[in-house]
Amino acid sequence: MSNPSIGVRAQRSVSAMAAFWALWMSTVSTIGHAAGGYSEDSVKAAFIYRFAGYVDWPEKFPAPQTFTIAVLGADEIAARLQTLTADRTIRNRPVQVRRITTIQGAADAQMLYVHASPGADLRNLLSAVGGQGILTITDEEQGLEAGSTINLVTVDRRVRFEVSIVAARRAGLRISSELLAVATRVQGDRIRSSVVCDSRHIQDTDSSCSTRVGGKVQE
């Protein structure tokens, strides 16, 4: 018998694939939720919300009536943050999630989440809000290098984050050691840092914090 035509062979192959696929599909429904997944944006929005609890905005940045989270370039995350914070307060203040299109819109915010275009000049963007008591959160490769305080990284289907103590210091913020303990990377000297304190007892003097941390949080 001569070789079957390409079309026939293709049909057979596809049939085999389909049979295989149908088999798997029928097993899908019988197997439990072994290793499902949540949407990336939900996890990120939750992180952004939770970060606020591990950062101290010193007195010299008097908070206005509302706690403002500015979001640049991520409408989906802004929407989720909005839902998330609707009935909640951060630092005893109602939360306002503000979608901004230029960095100037973040001027009086407490937190700024930037999802810039790859290739955008993130450093220029972030330097515009440096030193103003704004916790900057990015979602970029080299985000910390560009000057942000917290950078989200997605690795192996998990959202993790890295922290720059140097950038926090520049912004005038203090970051809890609990946050640093979970971070995948901490940039800046953790031990000599003046910003590392236990979140529940944030100290005003630098030296009293440094004895508490030797890499790990000491309760």
């Binding site: 499902g36 949540y38 998990r158």
Partner: peptide
């Protein structure tokens, strides 16, 4: 969820 729990969550790809 805590920060650690959030770090452990698997996201859809």
């Amino acid at each position: 969820l805590s920060l650690q729990e959030l770090s452990d969550i698997q996201i859809t790809s």
